[in-house]
């Protein structure tokens, strides 16, 4: 698996001052989102943390001061009967409840902005891109909650159907008939709409820098949408444990310019192998794709995604053999792709 190379010095620094160095380092993926959805999620992470630290921080400091001050033998004021106070008790219930109120309001904004099925962060960011924002910087938090304005439907968009197997990712581009394994290629600044299902067990789709998680469940279909704001390679993987090959269940997301994307599509559509249910069935056998070697197929069978769901609903399972990953160096049962 290709690793992202970072200057060695950074490791040492991070070791010494983990937090500070960590926040600076681009390797803290969640702090450096490259897509509107991930950015919205990060934004509200910061707000949530800021509000909470407003309460927790002073409380911690106050407690520390109390501990220092009222240590026995320091002859600070001792009042054994200080055990009740209407005002303080009203405050200690009231303040947290009010905080929950505020936080709920922000949750309410965020839950629509980052809604996996229809994240309004995407049309928002597109709208902001197409016309200069009235006030530079971001919009007020107290604006009416953002509503989907339909931009998604009109502009260019890419649809991808995702099927997880034990332990690979199958990406189907229904419009072009391309199917890729363990490699996702999408154009920049273009909404990508996923439909996801699993042929075996539950997985979670996650590309930390681009979009948060959504469950991928066998026999069911979930949806997710994302948009990438910068070309590059981004790591994606499953966040929900799915068996022996789970640690190696990653894929690379390559974000390219729209032009390069068209070129890639043309090239990939000429891949010699056809993707049919029979071909899928073979891929779905338990396989650990150690080196994440991508595969490309063209002329994908129509409705393959729905067909896989139907087959799972009617009892198709891909049994994992007993003790499959007990000895990884001489894999007896498991197919390992190097």
């Amino acid at each position: 698996m290709p690793s992202r190379d970072r200057p060695r010095a950074l490791y040492g620094l991070a070791l010494i001052c983990l937090c500070l160095a960590g926040c600076q380092a681009r390797s803290v993926w969640l702090f450096h989102p490259h897509g509107a959805v991930a950015a919205a999620e990060f934004h509200y992470t910061v707000i949530d943390f800021a509000i909470m630290i407003l309460i927790v921080g002073p409380l911690l400091v106050a407690t520390a001061l109390i501990i220092v001050r009222y240590r026995k033998g320091r002859n600070a004021r001792y009042d054994p009967h200080f055990k009740k106070s209407r005002v303080l008790e009203a405050l200690m219930w009231g303040v947290p409840i009010a905080t929950v109120g505020v936080l709920t309001y922000f949750s309410y904004q965020a839950v629509y902005l980052a809604d996996p099925y229809d994240p309004t962060a995407i049309p928002r960011s597109l709208a902001e891109k197409s016309r200069p924002p009235p006030t530079a910087g971001r919009t007020s938090h107290f604006a009416a909650y953002p509503r989907s304005n339909g931009t998604v439907r009109h502009g260019p968009q890419v649809d991808v159907n995702v099927i997880t197997t034990d332990w690979q990712w199958v990406f189907i581009y229904p419009r072009t008939g391309i199917t890729t394994v363990d490699r996702l290629v999408v154009p920049v600044d273009t909404p990508v709409h996923f439909r996801l299902t699993s042929a075996t067990v539950v997985n979670d789709f996650l590309i930390p820098e681009l979009v948060g998680e959504i469950d991928i469940m066998p026999g069911m279909r979930t949806k997710l949408a994302m948009i990438a704001s910068r070309p590059g390679n981004y790591r994606g993987y499953s966040a929900n444990f799915s068996g022996g090959g789970f640690s190696w269940m990653g894929f690379t997301t390559t974000v390219v310019s729209r032009r390069a994307y068209r070129a890639w599509t043309r090239k990939a559509a000429r891949a010699p192998d056809r993707m049919t249910y029979a071909a899928f069935d073979k891929i779905a056998k338990p396989t650990i794709n150690l080196a994440e070697k991508p595969m490309y197929f063209s002329r994908t069978q129509k409705g393959l995604f729905d067909h896989v769901i139907r087959r799972v609903l009617t009892g198709r399972v891909y049994e994992t053999p007993l003790r499959m990953t007990e000895n990884m160096t001489k894999p007896l049962y498991v197919k390992v792709l190097h």
Partner: peptide, 19 residues
């Protein structure tokens, strides 16, 4: 925050080493 998920037997990314 660096993106590490739980239950990993193998850590694919070397930048997670210091923590």
């Amino acid at each position: 925050f660096m993106g590490m998920t739980r239950r990993l037997d193998y850590i694919p990314f070397v930048q997670w080493r210091p923590p």
